[in-house]
Amino acid sequence: MFRNPMVSPDLLGASTGAGFGAALAIFIGASYYTITAFAFISGLTAVMLTYLISRVSRIKTTLSLVLSGIVVGSLFQSGTSFIKLVADQNNQLPAITYWLMGSLSSVKNRDFLLVLGPVLAGLVPIILLRWRINLLTVSESEARSMGIDTAKLRFAVIVCATLITSASVAISGMIGWIGLVVPHCCRLIYGQDYRRLIPSSALAGAAFLMLTDNLARTVATSEIPLGILTSLIGAPVFIALIVRGGSENEA
């Protein structure tokens, strides 16, 4: 997609956007469902902003996407920080902080049904398009010369990925690292072909999340927020990948 294996789903600002939406909703004292809805919509808005900025930019598509993703991400991040600053310190601030750390503890069956729609709407097309996504890994000119409308395909993938990310983050909060580490591990095991990489990453990511969540609930007497654990496990795995990957690529 970005011709760079080191990117993660948050690159375009979906989860920082969702984080801001949730913080805002908690700040104005919204109900549980409104928080979810705010997070979801705010995540979509962030990516839409990123995409629009990159469209009007005169720089190359992928680079401008990455740059505007960083800018939009930090914009929403500072928004979140500001809300934390002005929020009520006794109940709002802890609620926001806890939400941002990510957890599945308050997720109920009804939430599952709530996000099933957007997640499937994103997941099904991505699975069906998975051969074509391979062609986004070669240069823009090559892909176009092979008959691919790269702008359309890239847009479709961004919309789908954003739907999935925003919907998931809306009910779970920000659980980092899985989106970066799991696809990377799958790449090492199953190779670069997205025909295998996409289904395997989706399944392995879900499995890893379940495993970590079980740990989070059982290791200590009170539940550890999931986001902390995934980073704790994810970071060393990622360091190992950088060290290994480095020597591999120099060949």
């Binding site: 294996p5 010369s145 691919i148 190779g191 670069q192």
Partner: peptide
């Protein structure tokens, strides 16, 4: 156009390690 015209750039190192077969297969996409 892709069924008439093909483009071959100068030699570069790929960013992603697709197998040679998969890379060649990309040509059938159109």
């Amino acid at each position: 156009l892709s069924k008439i015209l093909a483009y071959i750039p100068q030699s570069y190192s790929p960013v992603f390690n697709h197998t040679v077969l998969d890379s060649v297969l990309m040509g059938v996409t159109s």
